[in-house]
Design a protein around this nucleic acid. Sequence first.
RNA 1: GUAGGUGUAGCUCAGUCGGUUAGAGCACCAGGUUGUGGUUCUGGGGGCCGUGGGUUCGAUUCCCAUCACUUACCCCA
Length: 401
Amino acid sequence: MVNPLRGMKDTVGEFSEKYTYFIENCSRIAKNYGFNFIETPILEETALFKRSVGESSDIVGKEMYQFIDKGKNDVCMRPEGTAGVVRAFITQKYDRAGGIKRFFYHGPMFRYERPQKGRLRQFHQFGVETFGQPSVKEDAMIILMLKEMFDFFNIGYRLQLNSLGCPECMPPYRKNLVKFLDETEGLCEDCLRRKVTNPIRVLDCKNEHCHVLLENAPILLENLCSTCKDDFNELKSILDDFGVEYEIDTKLVRGLDYYNKTAFEFVSDGIGAQNAIAGGGRYDRLVEFLDGRPTAGVGFAMGIERLMDLVKMPETKKESYYIGALSEDSLLKVMKLVVQMRKSNVIHTQYISKSVKAHMKAADKVNAKYFICIGDDELKNKTYVIKNLETKEEKSVELRD
RNA sequence: GUAGGUGUAGCUCAGUCGGUUAGAGCACCAGGUUGUGGUUCUGGGGGCCGUGGGUUCGAUUCCCAUCACUUACCCCA
């Protein structure tokens, strides 16, 4: 027997129904907010992810499905969605055209990690990206959109907010932080490495000992330039106005290198240790890092698998038909009726003749609302009966050729 | 990469202090007098007890190894 690879799951059964339901409704809401569907390739040049997600990130450092293809290209299966969308934005020369573009996407992402609850090697994200809109009002708007999606599915969450500053205030802060780290003894190995590669991520360290050492570290949020500070305050005030609750987390830095200014994460309790259900923020420099014209960007991604346990499907109302044959002679007639009715209805059937009772049991099994059976009597009288299985009402209908 | 937990029917799990033919519930199929369902009743199919080795007269059970799944660390969605 061939098993699926570790950390890879089939989309099938109940999960498949929820998945479709989720994508359909998120897509609908995103369209209402002015976003258009985009799909980018799963395979991209490795350089794309190295330059966008960042070599210092764990994702690029150790979690990528990377290989050399038959054309000797160094390629990767995408570990996240933003890089590809930004690349597509530049490929289409939208950066040169100017204006505002909004995209939503969904599909599989790949990271070579140890699977656990809420973490797979192939998982699925639904995400959005806005290009060319530097206003913090857009940041607020996509958070409101995310809230609307979660509210639609009745998913509880906590929103955590931070600001990562901009090219004006981040570098001096970073210098400050590195100085502090240099003076601090006893940091864990990872932090010593991060101090060089990406010092901001030291703040994010889960090591308890490091936590204690970092208590007096300079705080990013208190060292923002006036523009960043104003923007962050405006974001908070908009969210207040819309009644969106949030927590400020000065240590929220996120694992990807491309974020600046607004960074946020939606977390949910009770779904295991992997509790981030959505994350996003602003990435105003990313387009130019990837050789496009400087263009502001902001977006988020949701982890679909992590949300599926929290999504409850609405009661589906019965509406399908079941049509069965009572004799060998009526089988063909049943098939004709089935094909004709399938033009506008969901029809279940079976290719064998059997008793009314057996057919009705089969009709119940597929959750049909209406029941039709055709046997020799029906062929002779040119009529058949439609039975409503819920109300038990029966209605006679003419059987046409 | 590290640590714990679990592998028995399609699914959820019992069980064997080592001993004849390995069980239940659910699901599936058939039937309950010859054309009216869901609940019920009866019957049926279906298991190399994860894999390999060791101890033993005898292993699904004890021991070792291995693989898979799972949870957690780490990191993230």
